[in-house]
Nucleic acid binder design. Sequence first.
DNA 1: ACATATACCCGCCATT
DNA 2: TCAATGGCGGGTATAT
Length: 322
Amino acid sequence: MHNLLFVVFDDFQLIDLAGPLQVFTTARLYCDEKSPIPYNATIASVSGKTIATPSQVRIETTGLPRRLKPKTTIVVVGGFGMDPARRDTKLIRWLQTHAPHAYRICSICDGAFLLAEAGLLKGKRVATHWIDCDRLQNEFPDIQVDRDSIYVCDGNIWTSAGASAGIDLALAIVEEDYSAAIATLVARRLVLYTKRAGNQSQFSDFISMAMKDPDGVFTELNQWVLANISQEISVPDLASRAGMSERTFSRKYTKVMGATPADAVNRFRAETARNHLQTAKASLKSVAAKCGFRSVEHMNRVIQKLFGVSAKVLRETVADSN
DNA sequence: ACATATACCCGCCATT
DNA sequence: TCAATGGCGGGTATAT
């Protein structure tokens, strides 16, 4: 089980908390019996009292803990109250002391300033709200502000752009902690179309289609494929997994999914790769490996065929989501 | 870039 | 007889 520690302050932006929290909560529906409660969330502030938001909703909080529970992901929110919060030495000192021991550190929106203030972002690649990109870069020249990404993961530091990007970041975390299949199911459940400006969609069409497969015959199999996308997957393998002969499996799968088995696996790989290329700044080589391509060349060919552009171009055509 | 190897897929047909 | 199945084999697309 993972622990989440949301760090909030007066006049923080409600959706920075509510968005990611909803994603983590929904993930419960799709985790197996081994981890019935995948995420345990705590909302904390310096005062430990009820915190007001500009949206009129008030949030109960506890004080900042003296010790982090194991596998704690810290999530720092943003909002109107961010600037005063930066000057709150108790808050910044707490971050300096405890964040280095966290399993993972996240910020939403301009919450990145708090992490920067605490010196946690030195040399890191970072995303923040587009309005704040210049300011963040000027104030902290030693960090690399990535203006184009919805969210960025650099080591165990995850930062995200605007408010809704916090939801994307949370989905990516679910994917890392559990699986792409579960993240996709959560996205579907919450009806997150994630249609981005520039018509870039993060959770891609074929994958979504595979997840809803009306008859449900291959839904489970497709989930398995997504969860094991980094592995080599052969058609005979899939057939035996589906409990059919190769011939019958091939026939049925093609009929239901509208793509032959090997073709479908390739699309899963390519769309997963696209998602990675357009968010994290991992090397082409590591993306290829992560998506089960045997080489960068292999990945390029498949992407070129499916999307009509090279992997490099695909990465560069990321639209600003805010 | 080219050649070789192989994985795939699809028609054909016997079987259930 | 029909419908679904699945084994076979060759043609082909694709990987290395």
